[in-house]
């Protein structure tokens, strides 16, 4: 049996009576870059948020490097792991959000340093040095002491990516990271993600940038009504979609327009 970096089995998630994920199965190997596409409400973001336990899920399992995330079964009863353990498991993944979510009272460097000092227990100097390295990597070394309010949206998103990656996660989750950006700022963020992908970082991206998904991913998952509607390599998916639903979706997406 191959060792998967990420393994999702029969994932079910409901908000009250509304079932958002209806049995998702997915595996991912080290170094994979997978884009998740689909229309709004198809469950893309929810799936991503379940992986780092920002959302609880009612059924199925998620494992990273074979370690089950969030829940354990004791005496036949499924129960949520202790918060401290969940916090440790969350650090296995890094996440960049649509709205950046930088801590506004901290400089760019402090944003990156916080997790290194509080979670990794590094000294301030060590954390600063790692923060500078990653801010440099996203082209923002010179903005290390700027506050989020002094940065453009694209720069804020790059700091947010540096903050997540500095924690050295096994897997990076990107949740529509360009959706809140002005069109002219989108490219700078996509370039950073692309260069990280080229370095072999494992990534799961929820995106509406179809051209980007096509170029950067080695696999694409099309979510449809809480299930994986279709998956495969980008060339097949975008040029020869098997399902009518994906075909329709691509026609209305930015990929279809080009």
């Amino acid at each position: 049996m191959p060792n998967h970096l990420l393994e999702i089995r029969d994932l079910h998630k409901s908000y009250g009576d509304v079932e958002v994920l209806k049995g998702v199965d997915c595996t991912m190997a080290q170094g994979d870059v997978i884009s998740i596409i689909g229309s709004s409400g198809s469950g893309k973001t929810t799936m991503l948020r379940c992986i780092n336990m920002l959302e609880e899920f009612q059924g199925g399992s998620i494992s990273i490097d074979g370690e089950e995330i969030g829940y354990e079964t004791v005496g036949g009863q499924r129960r949520r792991k202790k918060e401290k353990e969940i916090a440790r498991q969350r650090a296995l993944t890094g996440m960049a959000f649509q709205q950046f979510n930088l801590f506004p009272h901290m400089s760019a460097a402090r944003n990156v340093m916080l997790g290194l000092m509080k979670v990794k227990k590094l000294s301030k100097d060590e954390a600063r040095s790692i923060a500078e390295k990653w801010l440099d990597r996203v082209g923002l070394r010179s903005r290390a002491d700027h506050f989020p309010g002094q940065l453009s949206g694209g720069q804020q998103q790059r700091v947010a990516i540096a903050r997540a990656i500095a924690m050295n996660p096994r897997l990076m989750l990107f949740d529509e990271v360009t959706s809140a950006l002005d069109p002219e700022l989108v490219n700078e963020v996509l370039q950073v993600i692309k260069s990280l992908a080229q370095d072999g970082m494992s990534m799961l991206l929820v995106t509406h940038e179809m051209r980007f998904a096509y170029e950067v991913s080695n696999r694409v998952i099309f979510m449809n009504q809480g299930r994986i509607g279709e998956e495969g390599n980008p060339r097949e998916m975008f040029h020869k979609p098997k399902s009518e639903r994906l075909s329709e979706f691509l026609k209305t997406s930015s990929f279809g327009e080009r």
Binding site: L54, R90, G94, M95, L114, K118, V119, A160
Partner: peptide, 18 residues
């Protein structure tokens, strides 16, 4: 305080107290 800031903290592995 936007709920996203708490989530960003959780995402980097901070505990609720932190």
């Amino acid at each position: 305080i936007p709920v996203g800031l708490r989530e960003a903290g959780l995402a980097i592995g901070l505990t609720e107290i932190q």
